[in-house]
C-alpha cells in the first residue's frame, strides 16, 4: 500500500511517541502494536519497521505477530467499522444472514473497506451479549437482534445507503 502525502510524517510522529512510552523489550510488542492501532487505526509497514528497530528484533518478527492475531489490521479501516458477531448464539440466530446483508448493501466482502474508506466490515468472535443475538457492533455500540431490515436501518443511520429504496416504495 502506497502512503499518501503527509501520512508518512504522521506515522513517524505517532510511533516515535508511542515507543517512548514503553521499555524497548520484546515483551512489549503486543501492547505497542495495540497502541499503534489505537492511534492510527491500523499498523502500517513503516510502523512495524520502526518498532523492530526500537526492540532490536528482525522486522519479520514484528510482521509475524501482527499478522497472527485477530485484533491487528494491516490496512486502514473504514471510518465506521461494522463488526458482525459470529459467536455460537449469534451464528445460530442469523449472524451469517446479517453479515450477508451488510456485504450486499455495502458491496464489499468481510474484511474489506469501502473504496472511500467510510465503512469497513468484519466479523468478531463473541462480544458476550449472547442474549441479544444476533448482534453487530458499530464502534463501541452494540446493536441487538439484527435482521436484514435492521441492517438497512443501521446503514441508513450512518448514511451508508441512501433511502432510495424507501422512496421507490412511495411511488
Amino acid at each position: 500500500m502506497e502512503l499518501l502525502e503527509g501520512e508518512k510524517e504522521v506515522i513517524v510522529n505517532y510511533v516515535e511517541g508511542i515507543l517512548e512510552e514503553f521499555d524497548p523489550v520484546q515483551e512489549n510488542l503486543v501492547p505497542i502494536l495495540q497502541e499503534v492501532q489505537e492511534r492510527l487505526g491500523y499498523i502500517p509497514a513503516l510502523a512495524m519497521e520502526m518498532i523492530a528497530t526500537a526492540l532490536d528484533l528482525p522486522p519479520v518478527d514484528v510482521y509475524g505477530p501482527a499478522t497472527f492475531y485477530n485484533q491487528f489490521r494491516l490496512v486502514p479501516p473504514g471510518k465506521y467499522q461494522f463488526k458482525v458477531c459470529m459467536g455460537t448464539a449469534c451464528y445460530m440466530a442469523g449472524g451469517q444472514i446479517a453479515l450477508d446483508s451488510f456485504e450486499r448493501r455495502l458491496n464489499i466482502k468481510e474484511g474489506e473497506t469501502t473504496p472511500d474508506r467510510e465503512f469497513g466490515l468484519e466479523h468478531v468472535t463473541c462480544v458476550g451479549c449472547c442474549t441479544l443475538a444476533p448482534v453487530v457492533m458499530v464502534g463501541d455500540q452494540v446493536e441487538g437482534h439484527v435482521t436484514p431490515t435492521r441492517v438497512d436501518g443501521i446503514l441508513l443511520a450512518y448514511d451508508a445507503i441512501t433511502d432510495e429504496k424507501e422512496n421507490e416504495g412511495d411511488k
Binding site: 509497514a45 512495524m48 519497521e49 523492530a52 528484533l57 528482525p58 522486522p59 519479520v60 518478527d61 514484528v62 510482521y63 509475524g64 499478522t67 497472527f68
Partner: peptide, 24 residues
Amino acid sequence: RNVAKAGCLGFSYRGINRIITTFN
C-alpha cells in the same frame, strides 16, 4: 536465526494461511 543470523525468514499469518515469508 541460529546459524546465518540474518533475521530474514519467519512465519506469518496462521492456520491454513500460515506461510514462510520475509518482512511484509
